[in-house]
């Protein structure tokens, strides 16, 4: 079906993508950069900051893009990053 798609899906508002909260335990990070490299949605990037272990820990570029696959948690050798689903108060 090769038609060019020109309109926004009408039911786009109906899907509620999971809202993620990313937790980075900055000082536990050893700067390997796996999480940044493997994040499928490019949510993370290296920060300028220097942590206790003297390396640049990751920082969050756009949390809303996170789809909660938790792959960062899985690849982090030092358990310095994990994600939780945001429980939204206003029932969003």
């Amino acid at each position: 079906m090769p038609e060019r798609i020109k309109h926004k899906p009408l039911d786009i508002d109906k899907v509620k993508p999971p809202k993620a909260e990313i937790h980075i335990i900055t000082d536990q990070c050893k700067g390997c950069g796996y999480c940044i490299q493997f994040c499928p949605k490019q949510v993370l990037e290296e920060s300028k900051e220097i942590n206790a272990r003297g390396v640049h820990p990751p920082k969050i570029v756009d949390e809303s893009k996170c789809i909660l696959c938790s792959f960062c948690t899985a690849v982090c050798p030092d358990f310095a990053i994990y994600t939780t689903e945001k429980k939204c108060a206003e029932g969003c």
């Binding site: 079906m1 309109h7 899906p9």
Partner: peptide, 15 residues
């Protein structure tokens, strides 16, 4: 599935 894209079958009018 966390991925949402336009459905080609619906010419992108649905996801």
């Amino acid at each position: 599935c966390p991925i949402v894209v336009p459905n080609e079958f619906d010419v992108g009018l649905a996801i």
